[in-house]
Design a protein around this nucleic acid. Sequence first.
DNA 1: TTAGTAAATAGGAATTATTCGCATTTAGAA
DNA 2: TTCTAAATGCGAATAATTCCTATTTACTAA
Lengths: 148, 148
Amino acid sequence: MAVSPQDPGGGVARAEKLRAAGLKATAPRLTILEALETDRRHPSAEMIFESLIDKSPSLSLSTVYQTLETFLQRGLLRRIAGAGGKLRVDGTLQDHDHAVCRTCGAVFDVDPDLIKRPRPPASLPHGLQVKNLFVEYEVLCSDCASDE
Amino acid sequence: MAVSPQDPGGGVARAEKLRAAGLKATAPRLTILEALETDRRHPSAEMIFESLIDKSPSLSLSTVYQTLETFLQRGLLRRIAGAGGKLRVDGTLQDHDHAVCRTCGAVFDVDPDLIKRPRPPASLPHGLQVKNLFVEYEVLCSDCASDE
DNA sequence: TTAGTAAATAGGAATTATTCGCATTTAGAA
DNA sequence: TTCTAAATGCGAATAATTCCTATTTACTAA
């Protein structure tokens, strides 16, 4: 989210982004959206909640879950399969790919220009509308490689 | 898994596959592996357990969880982020890609030849060893598209 | 402005998914 | 065969996610 002198912190732009997605620009959503834009940890719902609870003491964990689900449905967020299959999200805006460690499930961001990117077809069989295309690398991270 | 006249059902080949991966060829593993090879539902641990409990009444759910984790680590299985981030797996052998519905989380198999497949680099920054590369489509399935 | 209204939130309880601990069993090596 | 590390089954424990509902809030239109 660009931050201009007229919009320190980017709050106005974020509110517009929410409204453009057909959502009310509520305080919890603005806070969560901001957190997501800057959090590079591929956080879980709990991690987001923890990172915000001091600034927003009335925020509830179930609101975080609900909000993530809403954002996912509007394409404001990517879902990642973390270790044990638990929910992790990625709310950073720029296109990038993910590498997931086969053994420990750790997720790493990968520069999308490392490979020649396929052009996505507009639609797929079964009437699937393509919204985005990402590359996922199945990897062995250095920690896990040394255990083998 | 190929089935030859000498190995009806493919059990011997499966046992070899397990041993090749450094694992003991136990009865639960053979059963689970067979189920995974044929189950196209992108099943959860529970779904696999349910599909086997009649034939293998002594099988336990925690063994299914453990076995899936083991198979994942040996690359016998792919992990998928299902709806709500719950664990789903794909144990079908052939290369293929996945389309995941943004809204409901449904997973569809996609023919890998639909696009020009990028050649994976052998390694990535941070000492990541690349084992595999898949394409993931973020889509809207026809059910969810009609709700919008 | 200021109601009116549908949508969103908080909080806790309920449910579901996953992991753990440990006694028993088993595959494969010697 | 016998031995041993690894794997299993079971139930209990924990953790993650969803559900319920009274209250609050953003936006709409008068």
